[in-house]
């Protein structure tokens, strides 16, 4: 029965995308000020949304893979590429004020500058495709670890890692909420 393919999957793509767009807006991460203020450490909405999504999603997917209902979809860790890419991304995210997903969602909420930035994203995508041959030869092979996970790298079982993540997140959120509540 699963995974669903064909036309049904295409219809579900719109449904699941709709849910994601709705959640991004309700979580207020379609708002420029919320995203930039995260990096100014004045508003922790982005971290709250992301860490909660990773912990809730990760524990569920771990269980589903264990039950045989799902499989992992891991991507390659090409270390030079991911470090350079993430460094560029951090600059771009602050200057644009959105990441690609929240940018698309922000356009839908009436943010005209997000639409202009989406034009910039199109240019970035074209530049990547044009330079892809060079990237593939010069950057991607450097420090390539394959589909590595924190577990294959360190030997620590996934549940222990999630335990640590939960402990860290609860402590962080507790401090944040206490500070937000203080006058």
């Amino acid at each position: 029965m699963f995974p669903v393919t064909g036309i049904a999957a295409l219809l579900l793509a719109v449904v699941f995308g709709f849910a994601f767009g709705w959640l991004l807006h309700r979580g207020r991460v379609t708002n420029y000020d919320v995203i930039v203020n995260q990096f100014r450490l004045r508003d922790f909405t982005v971290l709250k949304v992301m860490l909660t999504a990773i912990i809730v999603g990760g524990l569920g997917v771990l269980a589903l893979v264990d039950l045989g209902a799902a499989t992992y979809h891991l991507r390659d860790a090409n270390m030079l590429a991911v470090v350079l890419g993430a460094a560029l991304f951090g600059v771009g995210m602050v200057v644009y004020g959105y990441c690609p997903g929240t940018g698309v969602a922000a356009v839908a909420t009436g943010s005209v500058h997000a639409l202009v930035g989406a034009g910039g994203m199109v240019l970035g995508a074209i530049l990547y495709a044009v330079t892809f041959d060079w990237v593939r030869e010069a950057i991607i092979p450097v420090g390539s670890l394959g589909k590595a996970t924190l577990t294959t790298l360190t030997g620590i079982p996934p549940l222990w890692i999630f335990g640590g993540l939960i402990a860290g997140a609860v402590l962080l959120f507790w401090i944040i909420e206490r500070r937000a509540g203080a006058p």
């Binding site: 350079l84 890419g85 993430a86 460094a87 560029l88 991304f89 951090g90 600059v91 771009g92 995210m93 602050v94 200057v95 644009y96 004020g97 959105y98 990441c99 690609p100 940018g103 500058h113 997000a114 202009v116 930035g117 989406a118 034009g119 910039g120 994203m121 199109v122 240019l123 970035g124 995508a125 530049l127 990547y128």
Partner: peptide, 11 residues
């Protein structure tokens, strides 16, 4: 926004 968007997508 345009410059940031280009950097973000390339990255």
């Amino acid at each position: 926004a345009f410059l940031g968007g280009a950097l973000a997508l390339y990255g």
